[in-house]
Amino acid sequence: MYAEKAVVRVHGGHKVHTRFYPNPRSDSTVILVNGSLATSASFQPALRFLQPLFNVVLFDQPYSGQSRPHNPSLGMLGKEDEALILLDLIEHFRADHIMSFSWGAVSTLLALAQRPARIRRAVISSFSPMLNRDMMDYLVRGQECLAACDRHRIATLVNETIGEHLPPRFKRCNFRHISTLEVHEYAQMLHHIRQVLSLDADRYMQCVGNVDIPLLFLNGELDKYTTPADALYFADLARRSSYVTIRNTGHFLESEHQTAWEDVRAAVEHFLLPGEAEQARRLAMVG
């Protein structure tokens, strides 16, 4: 799949490696925001159903993936910094939709609370405002592993918790990726966990209350960490929100099995292209 690669200077003088997947049949662009310990490569399953319908932008945070070599003297970035980076990328690529995964939702919602004029709709997957017992246990154990820089324990923890429903092939890829990250990336994730643990649900609720575009919250039926029920706590403030539970699926949604991929695709297409999804899919198949 063809991609235009570029390094874009953003908030704070940081440099971000981007990949733009053009779709000559679309004038709409969706930008994807990944979660902690992940790079843009984690969005390959989503890219398969998005690129036939949209232009798609993937990027790595300044501290990770292909962006890391371009930022040799990098301090810790907070979620507020990541929100400002996202706002710069939205303007640069003239994006009109966002799709975030897991903790990428924090910077996404902070950015959307600024009401960027270009953005029309956003998909928030595998996220809730509640730190329930399972999520708290995962974060506390993650803190210990990251502080010790214990690569094996960090990778094993992810696969045994939020990654418990991933197929074996994805677990092997996950383990290899997480266990070979640089020390700075572990430090950055530890900084994020400490930041998240210091926040409360009210902050996220108030942030979402400033968002004036339609939001779609996607959560896996089997996800114990960001449950569909917990996501509904957004409902009172996110008045233009809808909620879809993906059946027989955990935290990683479309990456877990083919039926989940199809269900996520249908939900996202229906939301981002209301009344146009089936026609757009047929045109993509003809093209």
Rank of each mutant, 00 (worst) to 15 (best):
A284V: 04
H152C: 09
L237D: 14
A284N: 09
T227G: 02
Q61S: 11
D150Y: 06
T180M: 10
N132T: 02
T29I: 02
P167R: 11
R240L: 14
L216S: 02
S36P: 01
S241T: 04
V140N: 09
S107H: 08
R265E: 12
A46K: 07
R203H: 14
S40K: 04
N132E: 09
Q195M: 07
V8F: 12
H257I: 08
Q188T: 02
N159Y: 04
A113R: 14
R94W: 11
L218F: 06
Y63F: 13
M135G: 01
M135I: 09
L50F: 07
S125V: 02
V244W: 03
Y233I: 04
R176E: 14
E91M: 09
D96N: 14
Q66H: 11
L89F: 08
E160Y: 08
T108N: 04
L112A: 08
A38F: 10
S40E: 05
Y233L: 15
V10T: 09
G142L: 07
S42K: 03
S100N: 06
F170W: 13
I124W: 05
T18K: 07
Q66F: 07
H97L: 09
A238T: 05
R133V: 08
R153S: 12
R133F: 13
V7L: 09
I31F: 06
T227K: 04
A105D: 09
N159Q: 10
A280D: 07
W261I: 00
G35W: 00
G220T: 05
Y2E: 11
R281C: 05
L222Q: 11
L215G: 00
Q61I: 07
L84Q: 13
A117P: 03
A266F: 08
S126G: 13
D223T: 01
A147V: 08
M1Y: 08
I213F: 06
G75A: 10
H192W: 14
F101I: 00
G275P: 04
H97F: 12
V106W: 12
A238W: 04
I246W: 00
H165E: 06
V264P: 00
V158M: 10
D212H: 15
A277Y: 05
H165Y: 15
S128F: 02
S36Y: 06
L199G: 05
L77P: 00
A38S: 12
M136Y: 13
L197Q: 09
L181A: 09
Q188I: 02
D230G: 03
Q188S: 05
R247P: 06
F43C: 00
A260D: 01
L197D: 01
W261A: 10
S179H: 05
T161N: 08
Q51R: 14
S28M: 09
Q114F: 09
F101R: 02
R141E: 13
G104E: 02
L181R: 13
A155M: 04
G35S: 08
S241P: 01
S67L: 04
E278S: 11
F217W: 10
L197M: 11
Q258F: 13
L112Y: 10
